[in-house]
Design a protein around this nucleic acid. Structure first.
Lengths: 246, 246
DNA sequence: CCAACTGGCGAACACTGTACGCATGGCGGA
DNA sequence: TCCGCCATGCGTACAGTGTTCGCCAGTTGG
């Protein structure tokens, strides 16, 4: 601690508090900065003190605007969901494209903010932004001919798929980022263990070698699209009241 | 601190260490106790000190068998995946039942240990038990006629759906448990806000009232089964090489 | 029989979330 | 114009956290 940090001994010498030009701290601002911090440094780096410092405020000041750290996180999660809008194509027959766009958008949001992957399983989310998204997608599905209850089931299924798929993707990516290695370096590092893997798990080994030369980003996109298409196929079948496939 | 807790002043008076009958601490034992603790008290209650005390050991002793808390959690997650076996029905045509059973089993495991929901999004999981499960399910799908790559995509889709769906279920249930209220009490408490909800989000409001009198447990089972069936429908269609539904 | 190694542990460190109480300034009413 | 109130910021403090380090007892291998 240097001399400058020491508290001023005389009351009279203490400088007047600088003027409070603007409220300087608002819930919106705090949440926005929290999102920035989470994006930049990941979930482990979010602490009240660090966030306060970033805002030029003390750690405990935040509690005037936010009850908990948990509540703050809840707000941050819904904040990023606010980036997403359910697309409205006019034609009810284009429900499939609309739903797919919604799913792709959700995936993009999660990959832009990988830390929410670690939150979604830890808290029940009922923020206003997610509710608006749900309401809109429900509308799209309902006008496409699904009953309300079935529209809800369909939406839940699609969201669950997207969240599950993208969460593991995000988890893999953050783990990669933490390790500081590229995807290729990882693959290279695992090569020696591949022989043992192929012996005990031949199919996984084959998959590993088969995917070794492909672009992992595009690969994940295709994997995601495949599952999404299968779900939408299934939903289309149900909408048509069609028979179950053999 | 009472007198009894004080360290013994004289070296000579210090009691001899009690005999080490068994190794008393092993990685298996630690992981098993961690799972028990997580099951009993939830994810926030897991601390190295508490876990050590439960095992009759000091907190830092655990580090002889486990590198990190993170590593411990990884081990615990894979431990519970060990409860699951991919069923092997002899008939390749029964791939659908086998996959469904696998999905239902995974759901059951997650609901039995709700805390893993908060882990799955936070770490890439490649434990041996999950790998064995994957390998087996891949086998089932491959002998059912899927190419290896497509079997992998299908498996990823199913797992992602199950994890996404069940994670939010688990999150809701733990949140309920923390609040100490029953599901009905929650519904009752939200009744006053329902009017406002129905005004801004009519479909969500209608769903809320429609589900008010149903058994929530059975409701969630049905919701889960619906999405799972749609995915399996879609996969069956793809396996048959059938045309995309309208 | 001694050496090396293993496993357990107490103390310490840097940090965490958060409760409490005080200080400060702006604002509404007299 | 002044006074009292109230919202807001913040310093301090507390109980806990994960983890490192060094010490020590017991076991094991040469």
């Amino acid at each position: 601690m240097t001399a400058d940090d020491r508290p001023i001994p005389s009351v009279w010498a203490r400088p007047g508090r600088e003027k409070r030009e603007q409220p300087a701290l608002s819930r919106q601002q705090i949440v926005a900065e929290a999102v920035r911090l989470l994006d930049a440094e990941g979930v482990d780096a979010l602490s009240m003190r660090k966030l306060g410092t970033r805002l030029g405020a003390g750690a405990t000041s935040l509690y005037r605007h936010v009850a908990n750290k948990d509540e703050l996180v809840e707000l941050a999660v819904d904040e990023v969901f606010g980036e997403l809008r359910a697309p409205d194509m006019g034609d009810p027959e284009r429900w499939r494209e609309a739903t797919a766009a919604c799913a792709q958008g959700l995936r993009a949001v999660i990959l832009r903010h990988p830390w929410i992957a670690s939150m979604l399983g830890a808290m029940a989310n009922y923020g206003p932004n997610l509710m608006r998204l749900s309401e809109d997608l429900l509308g799209t599905l309902e006008t496409a001919g699904f009953s309300l209850a079935e529209a809800n089931s369909a939406m839940s299924a699609v969201f669950a798929y997207v969240i599950g798929m993208t969460s593991s993707e995000a988890a893999w990516l953050t783990m990669l980022a933490r390790s500081g290695q590229s995807e290729d370096e990882w693959a290279e590092r695992l090569k020696p263990a591949l022989e043992g893997l192929t012996r005990t798990h031949p199919r996984l080994g084959a998959l590993f070698t088969a995917h070794a030369d492909e672009d992992p980003v595009r690969l994940r996109e295709q994997e995601f699209a495949y599952g999404l298409d299968r779900i939408l196929d299934g939903l289309a079948l149900a909408r048509a009241g069609g028979p179950a496939p053999a």
